[in-house]
Structure formats: structure tokens, C-alpha cells
């Protein structure tokens, strides 16, 4: 269970981790206090563990800064849902073990109570009583996410092994 925080289209990595906090990049807990500050200033202070970020189109566009998904996760967020993701951000989410899910987020409203079943590929909106399905990740990404992210994956396998692709 988690509460939905709705965001619009084209949430850039600058909105998630602003350039004016560049000097906090090696102090992630401090940087996380400013997560998504220029999109919704109240988010960082009010987000609860298990909450879910729900974006529109092209979520995470812009820079490669992995700090952006890292601080979304550090703030307690369980997953990011969006109609579509920018490429680097999407891959970064999986690499750090934060589920990034492509789903029709127009059907979800602010504050909805959501449940996510990664295996079955279903987002259950309890508030609305609807199920939204999403396609499985490419195998290589599913493996990385299942193993807890790319660091854990490499520690486990000692190498990049794209088995079962």
C-alpha cells in the first residue's frame, strides 16, 4: 500500500535534483530534503515511506544524474509510475533497485491508495477499485531489479551476464 503523489508531464532531472544543490551530491540524505522541490515544494517534507510517485509523459527527462532516482528512493518512495520515461532515468531506476513502471497514470488520482504486484504486472488502485496492467521489463532489467540493483547483481555474478536474453 502506498499513497499516490501526482506529477505532470516532462518532470526533468533538474526539477528532481536541482542544480543549485549541486554541492550536496556527496551528501545524499541532505540532497533528499530537496527532492522534487521545484515541482512540488511540499513533497520532500510530507512523503511517507511506501508512497508512490506518479508522473505523466517523459518522466525524468534531461541529465544522467543518478542522484535523481536515488533521492526519490531515499525519501521513502517505493516506486515511480509514469506514462513514459526518459531513457537514462529509467535505466538508472532499475540499476538502483527502484521499480519504474510504465502504466496509464491518467487513471490514478492524487492521494489514491495503490498496491503494486511486480510479478503479475498489476497496479491495483484501491481507492478507485481498478487494476492497471503493465508489461514486464526486458529480461536483463528484470534480473537486475530482482537482484536488488546493478551493484548487487555485479557482486553476485562478478560480471555482466545477459543470460536469457
Amino acid at each position: 500500500m502506498g499513497r499516490a503523489w501526482k506529477f505532470g508531464d516532462n518532470i526533468s532531472t533538474d526539477l528532481i535534483a536541482a542544480g543549485r544543490y549541486y554541492h550536496l551530491r556527496s551528501n545524499l540524505p541532505e540532497l533528499a530534503k530537496h527532492v522534487l522541490e521545484d515541482a512540488r515544494p511540499e513533497f520532500a517534507g510530507q512523503v511517507k515511506p511506501g508512497d508512490i510517485v506518479v508522473g505523466g509523459r517523459n518522466f525524468g527527462k534531461g541529465s544522467s544524474r543518478e542522484h535523481a532516482p536515488v533521492i526519490i528512493k531515499l525519501a521513502g518512495t517505493r516506486a515511480v509510475l509514469a506514462k513514459s520515461f526518459a531513457r537514462i532515468f529509467y535505466r538508472n531506476c532499475i540499476n538502483i533497485g527502484l521499480p519504474a513502471i510504465v502504466v496509464d497514470t491518467d487513471k490514478i488520482a492524487e492521494g489514491d491508495d495503490l498496491d503494486i504486484d511486480l510479478e503479475k504486472g498489476i497496479v491495483h488502485d484501491r481507492t478507485r477499485g481498478i487494476d492497471l496492467t503493465f508489461p514486464p521489463l526486458p529480461k536483463v532489467m528484470a534480473r537486475i531489479l530482482e537482484e536488488g540493483g546493478l551493484v548487487e547483481y555485479i557482486k553476485h555474478h562478478g560480471d555482466l551476464v545477459v543470460a536469457g536474453t
Binding site: 544522467s64 544524474r65 537514462i88 535505466r91 538508472n92 538502483i96 546493478l150 560480471d159 555482466l160
Partner: peptide, 19 residues
Amino acid sequence: GMGSTDVAVALALGKTWLR
């Protein structure tokens, strides 16, 4: 362009996975 962890692997192992 890639994120820090992907580039960490590319630097250390000299390879990366791509679609």
C-alpha cells in the same frame, strides 16, 4: 550517456549491455 552505476561497470569491466 548513462548513470553512475552503469558507467562504474563500463570503467571497471570495459563493457556494457545495450539494446
